[in-house]
Design a protein around this nucleic acid. Sequence first.
RNA 1: GCCGGGAUGGCGGAAUUGGCAGACGCAAGGGACUUAAAAUCCCUGGCCUUCGGGCGUGCGGGUUCGAGUCCCGCUCCCGGUACCA
Length: 844
Amino acid sequence: MAIETYYPFQECEPKWRQAWAERGLFRAGVGDGRPKAYVLEQFPYPSGKLHMGHVRVYTIGDALARFRRMQGYDVLHPMGFDAFGLPAENAAIKHGAQPGEWTERCIDQMREQFTRLGCSYDWDREVVTCRDDYYRWNQWIFIKMWERGLAERRKAAVNWCPKCNTVLANEQVINGRCWRHEDTDVEVRQLDQWFLKITDYAEELLGDLDAKLAAWPNLVTAQQRNWIGRSEGAEVVFRVKESGEPLPIFTTRPDTLFGVTFMSIAPEHPKIMEWIAGKPNEAEVKEFISRVVHEGRESRTDEAAEKVGMPLGVSAVNPVNDEEIPIYVANFVLMEYGTGAIMAVPAHDQRDFEFARKYGIPIRVVIQPQGQTLDPAAMEAAYVEPGVMTQSAQFDGAASEQAKGAITRWLAGRGKGEPTVQYRLRDWLISRQRFWGTPIPFVFCADCGLGPVPIDELPVKLPKKAEFGGEGNPLASVREWVNVTCHKCGGPARRETDTMDTFFDSSWYYLRYCDAHNDRLPFAKEAAAAWMPVGIYVGGKEHAILHLLYSRFFTKVLRDLGLIELDEPFARLLCQGMVLSEGEDPRTGEVKMFKMSKSVGNVIDPGELMDTHGADVARLFILFASPPDKDLEWSETGVEGMARFVNRIWRATQNNLETLRAGVAAGAEVEPGAVEREADRELLRRIHETTRRVTVDLAEREQFNTAIAACMELLNALNDYPLREGDPLGSRLAALAMTRLALLLAPFAPHLAEEVWSQLGREGLAAEQPWPRWDAAALKVETVEIALQVNGKVRARLQVGVEEAEASVRERALAEPGVQNFIDGKQVRKVIYVRHKLVNVVAT
RNA sequence: GCCGGGAUGGCGGAAUUGGCAGACGCAAGGGACUUAAAAUCCCUGGCCUUCGGGCGUGCGGGUUCGAGUCCCGCUCCCGGUACCA
C-alpha cells in the first residue's frame, strides 16, 4: 500500500471549511440554553489584503473561540469591517473610483481570506461601518449625546493635519505630528468643531481602571492612567495689581507659595492684549508672542527647547503674603492646561529655576531638605523634593507634604483658593473635514440656528457620488446634498458637511454584533445583556489609548442613556505582540529583526504562506513561535519545522490506519484501571496529562505555544509507543491517543483535526465534539523520581513510591552512595524533605 | 525624567505555588536508508574539566536547607509618554 507522506492540505482544507459552513457550526445565539461566551478580535480596516499581523490576532481569537465552543459554550465570535476612513478616499482620488465601491471590493477579498484561514466567524452578524444600516446608529447615538449635552460644537484651538486636510483628536497627534503622517507637523487652528465631552467621564474612566480592569495588561491601564493624567492640587487666586482683577493659577505645590517670585502666562492668554494695549511695550510683546506662536508647537513643546519670556510690565499679588511679583509671558506655558497661568517658584521647580537665572529673577528657598540649608546663590538646580518649610510665615517648620493641605485650607478659608483636580485628558474632537465617514446629522439654518436632523429622518446618507481630488471636503461640493430646508421653519438651510472620526464607529461596534440586524435601535438592551461584556478582546497595543479609551467612554455614555447596564465593555484584554522578520535597515544596512514593512523589504505574504504550507501550518507556527503577548520572530525554517509536525501527524495516522480504525471501532476509550503494562499506562497517562496541559493553557493562561508543545510531546509519545499487531488494548490506546490529539489540536489546526478525525472513522465533526476531559486517576503514577541534594546540590536521584512514608524516603536517601560520598566525614545538621520533589541533606 | 515590559544554550522559547534549569521547536554535528541527493528514521548536544568534579538564568549584595522565581542596589534593551505647573 502506498503511503501518503505529505498531508494533502490543498484538498483537505476547502473540504472541511465547506463542512463547517453546511452545518452552520459557528452561528451564535441559536437559543438552546448553553452558557454564552463572547470572543472578539479588533475588526480590521478593509485594505483588501490580510497581513501577518492580522493572521496573528485572528488566529489567536479563533483558537479561543473554537476552544470555548468545544467546551460547550454558545460562542459569539463575529467579524466586521472598520470601513470608513482616509485610505478609501485616497484610493478614490487615485483610481477614480467611488470610495464605497472600492471598499466593498476590499471587504469581499478580506472575507475570502478570513475564510481561507479557517476562522470560525458568524458571518450573519457581520458589521460594516460604512453601510447606512450601521452608521445611521452612529447618527442616532450622536444626537442622543447632543441632547444630553455630551456633544457640542464650539470654537477651539485644534490640531490640523495639512496632509489629511482635516482636524485630528489629541489622541491622534503623536509627538506633535499626525498619527498617519509621521513626517507632518500638526498645525494649530482656531475652528468651530464638534467635541464629545469625554472629560465628564475622566474620574470614572480613571477609577474603573483599578476597580474593574484588573484583568487588563498593566501596560494598557498604565497608559490610560497617564493619558487621563489626574493631578491633585489647588487653584490659587492671585490678583492683578493694576486692575484688581482675579488671576487664578493651578498648582500641585501650594507648599511653595511663599517662594513665588514671578508669574508666567501662556502667549495665547486672552488677558495679555488687554494689559499691553497702548503701553510702550505693546509692539515688543506682540512681536514676541507672534514669534513664539509661529515657531510651531512641535519645537515649542520640546523639553530641550530654551525657555524664553518677556516681562509684561504688569504685576500680580500673591494671596499668601500680598507680595507683588512681575508677570512674564513665557513660551513654555500651555494655554490648554490649568488656567494658562502659573505661579513660578524658581527654588523648587526646574523650569522656573532656569527661567529665573536667565532673567535675573530672585530665587527664594522655602523648603529645606532635612538637615541641610540651601543657598539660592549656590544652587545648580531646583530642589523639588519634600522637606521642611522655611520663610513661610506661620507654616515654618512644618513638613512640606503636610503644608500642602494646610496652606490650601488657609486659602480656602479666605476665599483665595480651593483644592482642585486637573486632568490632562481633553475633550474628544470628532469632526473631520472628509467625505468618507458618517455625516454628522445636523443642519444650519440662518433663522433657527444649528439643529439636529429629526431622528425619524435618519440616516443622513452619504451621496452616492462626489468629486474627489479637489480642494476641501468633497462632501461640501455636492450641492443637492448640502442644501436642504430647515425642518423647523422650512427656510433654506445647509447640512453640516463634517463627518465623524472613524473612531466613533469602532467605539460601539461590539454592541452591534449582539443584535446586528436591529432596525429600530442600535441594539436591543436584552441582546446586549445576553452577550456583554466581551469575555476576551484580542488586539494590538497600539490602541491602548485611542480605541480602548473611546470604547470605555462610549460604554459609560450608553449606560447613562439607558441602553445598557454595563460599566466596562471588555472583561479581559489580550494584546498580541508584533510580527517581526529579518530585514535590512534601508539607512544603515544593519541586518536584524524589524516589524514587517515594505521599506525594510521583510514582508511575508500570508496568501503565499497558505499556498505553500496551508492554513493550519500558518496558524500553528504563529501560535507556537512565541507567547501571544510577545513579539514574534518569523523564521522560514521554523515554519518548515511546523510543516514537518503536521506531516508527522499525518504519517502516524496513515501508517497505522487499519490498526487505529480497529481501535476506534473497538471503542477508543480506555479506563485507567484497565491498563497493566507499563508502556500502556505511560501512554494513557500522557494522553490525560496532555489534555490537562492544553486545557489549562487555553482556559487560564492563553499560552498557545506551550499547549502546542504539549501536543508535540503526545505525538512523540505515540510514535515511541510499541504498537503491535494483534493487541486490541494497544490499538484502542493508540486510537485514543490519535483521536485525542486531533481534538486537542482542533482550536489551532482545525482542518487537520477534522481530517484525522474522519480518517480514523469517527462520526461527526471534530469541531462539534465536546472538549475532552482528563481523569485524575490516569495521571497517577506509582513511583516518582526525586532529587537527592547535599547542601542544595543535586548528587543523586531516587525512585520513591508515591505513598512511601517520609521516614522511609529519608532513610533510603541518606543510604544512597551518591549522598554518602558527600556527607562522609561531615556532620548531618538537618534533612529537608519535600514530598515527591526532593530530599536535601545539610551537612558541614 | 516618568510609566510599563524585558534580559535564560548558537536561536525562538519552557520551568503553573521558592524545590531536579534548558520542556517543545529551530539551527548544528554524527549515523542509517539511497548510485546520489531530497525526504524520512536513529543518536549527540549549556560551558569548562586533570573525568573527581567545577561553573552556569544581565551585574553586585541579601533572605533561605534551597532563588531564573522573593528582597535591596545597579547595568543594558524594548515600548509608551513628557516643558502638564
